[in-house]
Design a protein around this nucleic acid. Structure first.
Length: 230
DNA sequence: ACCCAGGGTCATA
DNA sequence: TATGACCATGGG
Protein backbone atom coordinates (compact mmCIF):
# COMPACT_ATOMS: atom_id res chain seq x y z
CA UNK A 1 0.00 0.00 0.00
CA UNK A 2 2.54 2.54 1.10
CA UNK A 3 5.46 3.22 -1.17
CA UNK A 4 9.03 2.82 -0.03
CA UNK A 5 10.96 6.05 -0.52
CA UNK A 6 14.63 6.17 -1.38
CA UNK A 7 17.09 8.07 0.75
CA UNK A 8 17.04 10.82 -1.85
CA UNK A 9 13.28 11.13 -1.61
CA UNK A 10 13.36 11.64 2.15
CA UNK A 11 16.02 14.28 1.69
CA UNK A 12 13.95 15.93 -1.03
CA UNK A 13 11.06 16.17 1.38
CA UNK A 14 13.41 17.70 3.94
CA UNK A 15 14.40 20.38 1.44
CA UNK A 16 10.75 21.03 0.60
CA UNK A 17 9.93 21.48 4.27
CA UNK A 18 12.92 23.74 4.74
CA UNK A 19 11.90 25.86 1.77
CA UNK A 20 8.36 26.17 3.11
CA UNK A 21 9.11 26.88 6.75
CA UNK A 22 12.61 28.24 7.29
CA UNK A 23 11.26 31.79 7.02
CA UNK A 24 9.19 31.19 10.12
CA UNK A 25 12.34 31.51 12.16
CA UNK A 26 14.14 29.15 14.40
CA UNK A 27 12.62 29.14 17.85
CA UNK A 28 13.64 25.62 18.69
CA UNK A 29 15.43 26.04 22.00
CA UNK A 30 17.98 28.25 20.23
CA UNK A 31 20.68 28.84 22.84
CA UNK A 32 19.04 27.37 25.89
CA UNK A 33 21.06 25.62 28.55
CA UNK A 34 20.77 21.82 28.56
CA UNK A 35 18.76 21.74 31.77
CA UNK A 36 16.19 24.15 30.40
CA UNK A 37 15.95 22.06 27.25
CA UNK A 38 15.38 18.94 29.32
CA UNK A 39 12.80 20.61 31.55
CA UNK A 40 11.00 21.83 28.43
CA UNK A 41 11.09 18.34 26.89
CA UNK A 42 9.38 16.91 29.96
CA UNK A 43 6.91 19.74 30.41
CA UNK A 44 5.77 19.72 26.79
CA UNK A 45 4.53 16.13 26.92
CA UNK A 46 1.04 16.14 25.42
CA UNK A 47 0.84 19.89 25.94
CA UNK A 48 1.11 22.96 23.74
CA UNK A 49 4.38 24.87 23.85
CA UNK A 50 2.68 28.13 24.83
CA UNK A 51 1.66 26.49 28.11
CA UNK A 52 5.23 25.33 28.65
CA UNK A 53 6.55 28.85 28.20
CA UNK A 54 4.58 30.00 31.21
CA UNK A 55 5.99 27.20 33.34
CA UNK A 56 9.55 27.87 32.17
CA UNK A 57 9.12 31.57 32.90
CA UNK A 58 7.98 30.71 36.42
CA UNK A 59 10.95 28.41 36.92
CA UNK A 60 13.35 31.05 35.63
CA UNK A 61 11.83 33.64 37.92
CA UNK A 62 12.39 31.31 40.84
CA UNK A 63 15.97 30.63 39.74
CA UNK A 64 14.95 26.98 39.57
CA UNK A 65 16.36 26.20 36.13
CA UNK A 66 19.26 24.25 37.51
CA UNK A 67 19.17 20.82 39.15
CA UNK A 68 20.24 21.77 42.67
CA UNK A 69 17.88 24.72 42.92
CA UNK A 70 14.94 22.77 41.55
CA UNK A 71 15.64 19.88 43.85
CA UNK A 72 15.58 22.22 46.83
CA UNK A 73 11.97 23.15 46.14
CA UNK A 74 9.14 21.43 47.95
CA UNK A 75 6.65 19.49 45.87
CA UNK A 76 4.02 22.13 46.51
CA UNK A 77 6.34 24.91 45.33
CA UNK A 78 7.41 23.03 42.22
CA UNK A 79 3.83 22.13 41.38
CA UNK A 80 2.84 25.78 41.62
CA UNK A 81 5.61 26.88 39.26
CA UNK A 82 4.89 24.15 36.75
CA UNK A 83 1.11 24.46 36.85
CA UNK A 84 0.64 26.39 33.56
CA UNK A 85 1.96 23.42 31.60
CA UNK A 86 -0.88 21.19 32.80
CA UNK A 87 -0.64 17.75 34.43
CA UNK A 88 1.42 19.58 37.01
CA UNK A 89 1.50 16.83 39.61
CA UNK A 90 2.64 14.25 37.09
CA UNK A 91 5.23 16.61 35.68
CA UNK A 92 6.56 17.48 39.12
CA UNK A 93 7.08 13.76 39.68
CA UNK A 94 8.82 13.46 36.32
CA UNK A 95 11.15 16.37 36.97
CA UNK A 96 11.90 14.90 40.37
CA UNK A 97 12.69 11.53 38.81
CA UNK A 98 15.08 13.18 36.36
CA UNK A 99 16.78 15.03 39.22
CA UNK A 100 17.30 11.65 40.82
CA UNK A 101 19.01 10.41 37.67
CA UNK A 102 21.27 13.46 37.69
CA UNK A 103 22.14 12.85 41.33
CA UNK A 104 23.00 9.23 40.65
CA UNK A 105 25.54 10.38 38.06
CA UNK A 106 27.00 13.13 40.22
CA UNK A 107 26.08 16.06 37.98
CA UNK A 108 24.20 16.98 34.83
CA UNK A 109 27.50 17.42 33.00
CA UNK A 110 28.51 13.91 33.97
CA UNK A 111 25.17 12.54 32.80
CA UNK A 112 25.53 14.29 29.45
CA UNK A 113 29.05 12.88 29.04
CA UNK A 114 27.56 9.42 28.61
CA UNK A 115 27.59 7.80 25.21
CA UNK A 116 24.21 8.63 23.63
CA UNK A 117 23.14 4.99 23.67
CA UNK A 118 23.94 4.75 27.36
CA UNK A 119 22.17 8.01 28.08
CA UNK A 120 19.12 6.76 26.22
CA UNK A 121 19.00 3.60 28.30
CA UNK A 122 19.39 5.61 31.49
CA UNK A 123 16.62 8.00 30.45
CA UNK A 124 14.25 5.19 29.50
CA UNK A 125 14.78 3.70 32.93
CA UNK A 126 13.66 6.95 34.51
CA UNK A 127 10.00 7.28 35.46
CA UNK A 128 8.14 9.64 33.14
CA UNK A 129 10.65 9.58 30.29
CA UNK A 130 9.69 7.55 27.23
CA UNK A 131 11.32 7.20 23.82
CA UNK A 132 10.28 10.57 22.40
CA UNK A 133 11.39 12.57 25.42
CA UNK A 134 14.64 10.59 25.62
CA UNK A 135 15.48 11.24 21.98
CA UNK A 136 14.56 14.92 22.29
CA UNK A 137 16.95 15.20 25.23
CA UNK A 138 19.75 13.51 23.28
CA UNK A 139 19.42 15.61 20.15
CA UNK A 140 18.51 19.00 21.64
CA UNK A 141 20.26 18.93 25.04
CA UNK A 142 23.18 16.55 24.55
CA UNK A 143 23.35 17.59 20.91
CA UNK A 144 24.11 14.11 19.62
CA UNK A 145 22.27 12.37 16.74
CA UNK A 146 18.79 11.08 17.59
CA UNK A 147 15.77 11.21 15.30
CA UNK A 148 12.69 12.19 17.28
CA UNK A 149 9.38 10.58 16.33
CA UNK A 150 6.14 12.14 17.50
CA UNK A 151 2.46 12.16 16.63
CA UNK A 152 3.11 14.90 14.06
CA UNK A 153 5.75 12.82 12.28
CA UNK A 154 3.41 9.89 11.92
CA UNK A 155 0.55 12.12 10.80
CA UNK A 156 2.54 14.08 8.22
CA UNK A 157 4.25 11.09 6.64
CA UNK A 158 1.18 8.91 6.97
CA UNK A 159 -0.73 11.44 4.90
CA UNK A 160 2.06 11.36 2.33
CA UNK A 161 1.61 7.60 2.12
CA UNK A 162 5.09 6.96 3.53
CA UNK A 163 6.48 5.12 6.50
CA UNK A 164 5.51 1.99 8.43
CA UNK A 165 1.83 1.07 8.63
CA UNK A 166 2.25 0.51 12.35
CA UNK A 167 2.50 3.17 15.00
CA UNK A 168 5.58 1.61 16.53
CA UNK A 169 8.04 4.27 17.68
CA UNK A 170 11.06 2.10 16.92
CA UNK A 171 9.86 1.19 13.44
CA UNK A 172 9.23 4.81 12.56
CA UNK A 173 12.59 5.84 13.89
CA UNK A 174 14.33 3.17 11.83
CA UNK A 175 12.44 4.38 8.78
CA UNK A 176 14.26 7.71 9.01
CA UNK A 177 17.57 6.59 10.50
CA UNK A 178 18.09 3.92 7.84
CA UNK A 179 17.59 6.45 5.04
CA UNK A 180 19.39 9.55 6.25
CA UNK A 181 23.05 10.23 7.03
CA UNK A 182 23.80 10.28 10.74
CA UNK A 183 23.95 14.03 11.13
CA UNK A 184 22.82 15.67 14.35
CA UNK A 185 21.97 19.02 12.80
CA UNK A 186 20.04 17.42 9.95
CA UNK A 187 18.02 15.22 12.31
CA UNK A 188 17.40 18.04 14.75
CA UNK A 189 16.19 20.33 12.01
CA UNK A 190 14.17 17.67 10.19
CA UNK A 191 12.09 16.97 13.28
CA UNK A 192 11.57 20.67 13.97
CA UNK A 193 10.45 21.24 10.38
CA UNK A 194 7.97 18.38 10.63
CA UNK A 195 6.43 19.98 13.70
CA UNK A 196 6.24 23.40 12.05
CA UNK A 197 4.71 21.81 8.98
CA UNK A 198 2.12 19.85 10.91
CA UNK A 199 1.06 22.91 12.85
CA UNK A 200 0.47 24.91 9.69
CA UNK A 201 -0.66 22.34 7.14
CA UNK A 202 -1.56 19.04 8.78
CA UNK A 203 -3.92 19.86 11.59
CA UNK A 204 -5.76 16.88 12.95
CA UNK A 205 -9.21 17.69 11.70
CA UNK A 206 -9.14 20.57 9.27
CA UNK A 207 -6.62 20.59 6.43
CA UNK A 208 -4.83 23.84 5.61
CA UNK A 209 -3.27 22.51 2.47
CA UNK A 210 -3.49 25.72 0.46
CA UNK A 211 0.15 26.66 0.11
CA UNK A 212 1.66 23.29 0.89
CA UNK A 213 4.10 22.36 -1.86
CA UNK A 214 3.82 18.72 -0.82
CA UNK A 215 0.10 18.61 -1.56
CA UNK A 216 0.68 16.69 -4.79
CA UNK A 217 2.00 13.81 -2.70
CA UNK A 218 -0.73 14.06 -0.10
CA UNK A 219 -3.12 11.12 -0.02
CA UNK A 220 -5.32 12.52 2.75
CA UNK A 221 -8.77 13.90 2.07
CA UNK A 222 -10.68 15.86 4.66
CA UNK A 223 -13.99 14.22 5.48
CA UNK A 224 -13.71 10.98 3.56
CA UNK A 225 -12.10 8.42 5.85
CA UNK A 226 -10.70 10.36 8.75
CA UNK A 227 -9.83 7.11 10.48
CA UNK A 228 -7.31 5.13 8.47
CA UNK A 229 -5.15 8.01 7.30
CA UNK A 230 -5.25 9.80 10.58
C1' DA B 1 -19.16 23.38 24.81
C1' DC B 2 -16.26 21.16 22.57
C1' DC B 3 -11.40 19.58 20.53
C1' DC B 4 -6.68 19.69 20.78
C1' DA B 5 -1.80 19.97 22.29
C1' DG B 6 5.81 18.48 20.39
C1' DG B 7 3.62 11.52 25.91
C1' DG B 8 3.88 8.26 29.41
C1' DT B 9 2.14 5.09 32.93
C1' DC B 10 -0.84 1.84 34.58
C1' DA B 11 -4.65 -1.59 34.68
C1' DT B 12 -7.03 -4.76 32.09
C1' DA B 13 -7.84 -8.85 28.76
C1' DT C 1 0.79 -6.93 22.85
C1' DA C 2 -2.80 -4.05 22.46
C1' DT C 3 -6.16 -0.96 23.84
C1' DG C 4 -8.24 2.53 27.09
C1' DA C 5 -8.38 5.63 31.22
C1' DC C 6 -5.96 9.09 33.28
C1' DC C 7 -3.25 13.19 33.89
C1' DA C 8 -4.88 18.96 33.63
C1' DT C 9 -3.91 23.76 31.80
C1' DG C 10 -4.86 27.03 28.11
C1' DG C 11 -5.98 28.34 23.22
C1' DG C 12 -8.89 27.95 19.19
Amino acid sequence: MRSVPSSDELFEIYKELDAMHSWRGWHWWPDAEPFEVIAGAILVQNTSWTNVEGALANLRGANALEPAAMDALTDDALEALVRPSGQYRQKTRKLRAFLGLVASHGSLDALLELHPACLRTALLGTWGIGPETADAIIVYAQRKPAFVIDAYTIRVFGRLGLGPASVSYDEWQRFFVDRLPEDRDLWARYHALIVLHAKHFCRKTRPHCGDCTLRARCTWRASATASAMN
